[in-house]
């Protein structure tokens, strides 16, 4: 167990170092002066320039510069954004909750719809219901997400006028940002008649969540379906059937658990899809999250912001992937056996 953890953590650190080197070198590779790119302050007087150059250690060797960069990053100092002249970390933390909120709901929707549908399709393998579920999932899986988003907007917003097409909340509601998670903030706020505000927030959530959930949900359906088919062919299922278990008992006791185990490590993959799709979804629905923020930074050539977001987002993704793997090891006894044996 300990060795396993050590190995994973080793992997985590190596990757993080590679990413930080890349992010650091961007400061030099971007057009313009490294002092300006690292600090984010575009107009400097001569003495300010000299001072900054020293505090950023840019007058020293590349290696020392890199160490100074790492030190600053650990302290959360990523410089200021070109466009807003505010610390990048503050900006990042401001937009982060919106993205987490959106991905979390999409993940919930994915699991709530994906797992049962996949289970159903797997159990009723090759019957009509399976064919319907599987072909719809395949079609949805093949449609690019930006197109799904636009399609939803076209149908539900422009034609039906049921749901709003952009933002997290009607801007006329002024909900003070305390946690950054909108639904929590509404609860904490002292607005009168909160039900209106909640309704509004949820209406804004529906389309982005649905758009974002489409791709991972179809992936989950596919994975679950094939896993269930595999499990259903196992001898122990036949044994259980001959023992006279009802279908419900069979599914709850044997199929569901055993089918779920092999696909848990793939949730990491799911998470990656989810994060990339979040960025696209945010741009389509003007959702004020990280994706929208990074794309704006790219449009505005906001180099410090691009550099910092590369580092932060990539580190987050890798950490979560490693954590998921460790979690998988904790729920799957087979994995533990495997690694105990090879120790």
């Amino acid at each position: 167990m300990f060795v396993y953890l050590l190995r994973r953590i080793n992997l985590l650190f190596t990757t993080l170092i590679v990413i930080s080197v890349m992010s650091f070198s961007l400061g030099h590779l971007f057009p313009g002066d490294p002092v300006i790119n690292f600090s984010g302050k575009p107009s400097l007087t001569y003495s300010e320039y000299q001072d900054l150059s020293q505090t950023l250690a840019l007058d020293k060797s590349y290696f020392e510069q890199y160490l100074a960069y790492l030190k600053r990053s650990f302290n959360g100092d990523f410089g200021v954004s070109f466009s807003s002249q505010k610390p990048i970390l503050d900006e990042f933390l401001r937009v982060l909750p919106a993205s987490i909120e959106l991905s979390l709901y999409a993940l919930l929707v994915t699991l709530v719809f994906g797992l049962p549908l996949g289970l159903l399709a797997g159990i009723k393998n090759n019957r009509l219901i399976d064919r319907i579920i599987f072909s719809v999932a395949t079609i949805l899986n093949s449609i690019p997400i930006f197109w799904v988003g636009l399609l939803f907007i076209l149908i539900f917003t422009l034609n039906m006028n049921w749901l709003p097409m952009s933002g997290r909340l009607t801007l006329l509601y002024e909900v003070p940002s305390i946690t950054g998670f909108l639904l929590v903030d509404i609860a904490l706020s002292d607005l009168a008649n909160k039900s209106y505000v909640y309704t509004d927030a949820l209406r804004h959530l529906i389309l982005p969540t649905a758009t974002l959930a489409v791709l991972p949900a179809t992936l989950v359906i596919g994975m679950m379906r094939s896993s269930v088919i595999h499990v259903m062919g196992m001898p122990y299922i036949k044994a259980a059937q001959t023992k006279g278990l009802t279908s419900w008992q069979l599914i709850t006791r044997h199929v569901f658990r055993n089918a779920l185990l092999p696909i848990i490590p793939q949730f990491g993959l799911l998470f990656n899809t989810l994060v990339t799709s979040t960025m696209i979804t945010e741009v389509i629905f003007s959702w004020p999250g990280i994706g929208n923020w990074i794309i704006e930074a790219i449009y505005q050539r906001d180099f410090p912001a691009i550099q910092a977001s590369l580092l932060i987002v990539a580190s987050m993704m890798i950490s979560i992937n490693v954590l998921l793997e460790i979690a998988h090891m904790m729920v799957n006894p087979l994995m533990r056996k495997e690694f105990n044996a090879t120790k």
Binding site: L111, V112, L115, T252, F256, R257, L261, M330, V331
Partner: peptide, 16 residues
């Protein structure tokens, strides 16, 4: 270490 159970899952889904 952690036991997977469909009942946990169903409970979570229904409450959601």
């Amino acid at each position: 270490m952690i036991k997977l159970d469909i009942r946990h899952y169903l409970l979570a889904s229904f409450s959601l």
